[in-house]
Every structure is written in C-alpha cells, then in structure tokens.
Nucleic acid binder design. Structure first.
Lengths: 249, 249
DNA sequence: TCGCGTTGTTCCGTGTCACGGAACAAACAT
DNA sequence: ATGTTTGTTCCGTGACACGGAACAACGCGA
C-alpha cells in the first residue's frame, strides 16, 4: 500500500510534469482502479494535486522536502559562500553532495542568463560526468574509485569521460590540485570548475561554477571557487559535523 | 494506512528535528507497534532515515519536494531577480506566495550575517505578520481581506498588528504605494520591506528585503524591491501563466 | 449527429495484510 | 540489583485494500 503510493510518486521523478491517470497506471504497472483510489487519497493528503485530469506533485511534499535536515542544514550554511561565489563570477553556481555513485544537487543559483544544464536541485547525475561529481569522487577514498571504475562509465554527452584510464588520471590531478575541471561532459557548450568541501580528509560536498565554453577562463575562476570551498569547510568544521550524533552502529 | 503514514511525517513539520519511536507514537496518537511497522516501511522507501534510535526525514522527500512544479517553476524564474536584489542590498531576501491565509516561503537567500527569523523555505507564517504576507493580502481581493479580518489576528511578536483597523489602513497604504512595510512584527529587531509580483491585478507572489532594525533605510531599499518585483512580474507575464492549462472546471 | 476508442469512475465479493494488545527484550537510570 | 522507559516480536482477528467487470464521460473523426 505504502509501496504502491511510492511507486506513483516516483513516476514524477525526474520529470515532475503532469500525468494523467492512465499514464500513471501504465508507468507503475498498477491497475487503473487502484491508482485511482490511491491518487485520490494522496490528493486528500496534499501529496498530489489535481487540476482537471492531470496529477501533479503537491505542496505538502515541497514543505516536507524543505525540512530534510541533512540537506537543509548544509544548504543553509553553504548559501553565503555560494552568494560570494556568484557575486565574484556572476555565473551559475552549484552545490552538490555524493549519494552512492551519483551527485545530488542541493542548490543551484544563477543570474538572468540561463544555461541549459541537466542539473536540477534535488536531482542526481553520475559522479563521473560533472566537475562537482569528480571533485567528490576524488576525495571519497580509493575503494569508491575502484567501485566506480569497475562498472562501465556512463556518459551524458560525447565528451563525457568513458575511458577508465583517463578518469583515473583526471582524479589524480584533482587530488593534487584540489580543483576539478569539466568541459562539455555534462552539457554541450558548458564548462565547469569545482572544488571539494572537506570534513577531515574526505569531501562532504563540492561547489562549482558553470560557464559557457566560449568564455571559460579557469585561471580567473579557480581562486574564487577554492576560496569559497575552503571557507565553507572551515565553517563546517567550526560548527561540528556532529549536531546529530551518529550514535551506535 | 496512508493517512497514518502522513500523520507520522507531519510530526516533522515544522521542527524537522529527529524524533524517537515513542515520541512519534505519542505525537501521532498511534500505538507503538503500528508506528514501528510504518516507520520501518517509510525508511525502506527513503522517506525517513534512521540513525540509531532517531528518525529523520529522508532524502527521497527532498528529491520529490524539489520537483513540485508550481514551486519549482516560480522559484526558478524568480531567482535572477532575487540575486539582483541581494546584490543591490546585501541583505536577506525572501520570495513568498499565498496559500490560504498564510505565506509560504519559496526561497530565502542571505549572506554571512544571519538574521534570526521565523521564516523558513517551505514554512508558512500568518499573512498579517510579515511584509510579504501583507503585500500578498493587499492584492488578493477584498473578500480575502474581510475573511482575514473576521478572525482574531495572530501575532508573532508584541509588535504584530492585532488591531483590525490598523491592518485595514496598512493594507490601503500598500495598495496605493505598491510597497509593504513591517517593523518587528515577525521577529524582534528586524524590519522588512516587500513588493508584490503581479499577474494581472492580483499578486501571485511577493518579495522582500529583511534588515536589522537599526540600519533600516526604506528610501534606499524601496526602488530596488520595486524594480525586482516589477521585473519578475514582466517575465511571468511574458512566459504565460498558462504553461499548465487549467482546463475544464 | 452518430458511433467508437479511450479514459475516468463506481461497484462489490474476495482474501490479504494491516492492526494493535500482550508479552518480551534492551537500554537507561538510580 | 531493580525499577522504568523504550524498542521489538508475535500472532489471531477483522477491517479494508484489492482489482476485475461493468458503466459513464469524454474526445475525435466522419
């Protein structure tokens, strides 16, 4: 029952777009009357909304989603640094964390010029295809790197790194320089530079600047990204990662 | 069953903080074994997380919440204007919409100086206690105003407006000037100025600047807020509110 | 205007699985 | 050592989720 409800809600990820009853039925594999009943319940609870024949994710989910502690806290303390970085570069800024073998973006801020990017707040992308992802991967321990390299590498564009050796070299460079680069590996015509945010010697997050390829000037962006990332690291260390003690096991 | 799960999740609003099994049982009024079973299911689905004996809202909710179309679209198109406003003022910026008789905040950005505010992204406050709320209320039709005035006015601080006549006058001023002011009505030592974002002649959103009372200089902030709000209004008009046609009934 | 495919909704008999009291185990306090 | 609170397991009962089938509403092309 809960599981079926979750199936329905998961239909809306990642597109979010409106769906009709029969589409939901088809996508979940659940019979139509079942979806009908469950969807009606979900609407009553505010988890879905309905306008005419179309179902949308509901306001309650936004409310609850905004409260998720890990996300909210990190986003909140990172925000001032993201603003600094935006003000310094006036380009699109990302904040991401690692979740398994993917990046999840917690924040994305930008000005009036909108890049066409696959990244969305709350959405996830392969670690290996983005600057943020590679920054996280490079400082998440050797085991994870091996784990990632043991599968075929996914790609978002023809420029995505699919050769394990190239990736390994790229990660080593990142480990040395503390900076992660990406050129059209996630979206065409977009380049990106990222820096990891540390807690101890592993990365807990990374932030990046995304720029149209034609005006990508890494030398100018590097100090700003690094500064922001280090500043955030320092604040996180200060306030102690242990606001929620992880306790037993 | 769904309803019981919703009860459990609603425990986390607005505090978000971690809860133990017995607290959840008490707050929901559900028997312990029931909560235990449901919570376990919710954890399996990623809607809750569990570290030791504490339950937290889960990552999946963040993911889904970020996709809620109304929120996401408005937030996305508003963001550049919020950035402009932040850059012009370097103060805390809010974006809010009306939901019933409350404001819901879609975005809040700020620099390193953190004001102590009751507003949270995804959270809601009474319309009458905040600059954003009053801006929305002033341009939501006379019926709503009467509806609000027909109940006793809530208050967040001793400065919150609780006198219906005073509120009515304040709203009229807002309707004339297109600007909404608030002084320590939501949080002590904080003043605020807001401007409505229009679709036609009713407000679909409002944005505000919150400032420590001591350095509140309305004359300097007013043009910036108004400019940002009008700019956003224009863009919203341009892209048509009708991306999701409301269709029948 | 009619008919036909599609989509949404209602009905209801069947069987499942959610339910929660009770009993047990583990953690914590004193 | 002993009570107290919290977390977990068990299991018999019955409510209610389930989904096929039949029906209604819509959209579309002729």
């Amino acid at each position: 029952m809960l599981e079926k409800a979750a199936l329905i809600l998961d239909c809306f990820s990642p597109s979010g777009g409106p769906y009709r009853l029969s589409e939901l039925s088809e996508r979940t594999g659940l019979p139509k009357p079942t979806v009908h009943r469950l969807a009606a319940d979900l609407v009553r609870l505010g988890w879905l909304e309905r306008s005419g024949p179309r179902y949308l994710l509901g306001a309650k989910l936004f409310e609850l989603g905004s409260l998720v502690p890990h996300r909210r806290d990190l986003r909140e303390t990172a925000l001032p640094f993201l603003q600094d970085l935006f003000e310094a570069t006036r380009e699109t800024i990302h904040l991401g964390i690692r979740e398994g073998m993917e990046v999840v973006y917690l924040e994305r801020i930008h000005g009036h010029e909108a890049l066409r990017l696959p990244s969305r707040i709350g959405g996830s992308l392969p670690l290996t295809c983005t600057a943020v992802g590679k920054a996280l991967l490079a400082f998440s321990g050797a085991e994870l790197t091996e784990e990632v390299l043991s599968h075929p590498l996914p790609s978002l564009t023809p420029h995505s790194i699919t050769d394990p050796d190239r990736l390994r070299m790229a990660l080593e460079k990142i480990q040395v320089s503390g900076l992660s680069y990406e050129e059209q590996e996630a979206a065409s015509e977009v380049s990106c530079i990222a820096a990891p945010v540390f807690a101890g010697d592993t990365a807990v997050a990374a932030l990046s600047v995304a720029v149209p390829r034609t005006r990508f000037r890494p030398a100018q962006l590097a100090p700003a990204v690094r500064t922001a990332a280090l500043g955030l690291s320092r604040v996180l260390r200060g306030q102690g990662g242990a606001r929620i003690p992880l306790s037993s096991r």
